[in-house]
Amino acid sequence: MPTSSFKIRLFSVLKSKLKVASIELKTTEEITAGGLMDLACEQYPPMAPYRSIMRLAVNQKYVQDSNRLQDGDEIAIITPVSGG
């Protein structure tokens, strides 16, 4: 199984905690949206306290945690928004 690499955009509180606007994760297995967020929290522990309030956006649409990811997807982790 080839390695998949996902660039994940960060915003708001996660961007501030990690001091970067994106992170890159590699996986050799098929992965779901929830799996990718779990992996992100393992590799970047400052994200872990926010795990329960994360939603993944894939190709600029929110997805369920069970959604499978494809190589090349545009990915962002979204915490509860506060526009308005």
């Binding site: 915003f11 509180v13 309030i53 956006a57 929110y62 526009g83």
Partner: peptide, 20 residues
């Protein structure tokens, strides 16, 4: 739903991201 976030600077010096 719309991915926009607000950051507030308070008079006591605290600066925080607001979460919905």
């Amino acid at each position: 739903q719309v991915p926009i976030w607000k950051r507030e600077l308070f008079s006591d010096g605290q600066e925080i991201w607001i979460q919905g």
